[in-house]
Simulated scan of single mutants.
Amino acid sequence: MNIYISHLSYGVDDNGLKEVFEAYGQVDSAKVITDKFTGKSRGFGFVEMPDEAEANKAIEALNQSEVNGMTINVNIAKPREERPRREYSNNGGGSRGGYNDRRSNNRW
């Protein structure tokens, strides 16, 4: 079962998250999500537990509990939704006041 954890302290890493959940059963993986540019925690993560009964026990016991000074939220993870791709184009969209628009006003 995939478990979603939010409001994690920024000091919790993958190993720390795994240790918290191992008290309730086998943990296949634990991942704290990090910012791709800074590498710092984004304050949430996921834990994968193979045994559904152990996972439910962990959710019940850990939801609204304190970990590393923060009260965490623990729930069953929802499947990731497919989002439409963003398309960026400048096909006659009109003036947006960009650099070239300012230059053409001869105020330089």
Results as ranks from 00 to 15, higher is better:
Met1Gln: 07
Gly93Gln: 10
Glu60Cys: 06
Glu87Leu: 11
Asn56Met: 14
Glu60Ala: 13
Gly16Asn: 05
Ile59Cys: 08
Arg102Asn: 11
Met49Trp: 07
Lys36His: 14
Ser41Tyr: 03
Thr34Tyr: 11
Gly43Met: 12
Ile3Pro: 03
Val27Asn: 04
Ser29Phe: 01
Met49Ala: 05
Asn90Met: 11
Lys40Gly: 00
Pro84Phe: 05
Gly25Ala: 09
Met49Lys: 03
Gly39Asn: 10
Gly98Asp: 15
Asn75Tyr: 13
Ala23Glu: 14
Gly92Ser: 01
Arg107Pro: 02
Ala77Asn: 10
Tyr88Lys: 12
Ala23Thr: 08
Glu82Lys: 15
Ser104Ala: 14
Asn105Pro: 00
Lys57Thr: 12
Arg102Thr: 02
Gly43Arg: 13
Phe21Ala: 06
Asp51Cys: 00
Ile72Gly: 13
Phe44Ala: 01
Asn73Trp: 00
Asn106Ile: 00
Arg96Tyr: 09
Tyr10Asn: 06
Asn2Ser: 08
Ser65Tyr: 09
Ala30Tyr: 02
Ile59Met: 10
Asp35Arg: 11
Val47Asn: 00
Glu52Ile: 07
Ala77Ser: 14
Glu22Leu: 08
Asn73Gln: 11
Val74Pro: 05
Ser104Lys: 13
Arg83Pro: 01
Asn100His: 11
Pro84Leu: 00
Phe44Lys: 04
Glu81Thr: 13
Ala55Lys: 05
Gly92Thr: 00
Asn75Ile: 02
Leu8Ala: 04
Val27Asp: 10
Asn91Leu: 03
Glu87His: 11
Glu60Lys: 15
Asn15Thr: 09
Asn91Val: 04
Gly93Pro: 00
Ser9Gln: 06
Ser65Asp: 07
Ser95Gln: 08
Ala77Leu: 08
Thr71His: 09
Lys40Leu: 03
Asn63Glu: 01
Glu87Gln: 12
Gly25Asn: 07
Lys78Trp: 09
Phe37Asp: 11
Ala58Val: 00
Gly98Glu: 14
Lys36Ile: 11
Pro50Met: 14
Ser89Trp: 08
Tyr4Thr: 03
Arg86Ser: 07
Glu60Trp: 00
Tyr88His: 10
Glu22Gln: 15
Val20Trp: 10
Glu82Thr: 14
Glu19Thr: 13
Ala23Trp: 00
Phe21Lys: 02
Val12Gly: 01
Ala58Pro: 02
Glu22Asn: 11
Tyr99Gln: 10
Asn91Gln: 13
Ile33Lys: 04
Met1His: 09
Arg107Leu: 12
Val67Ala: 04
Lys18His: 09
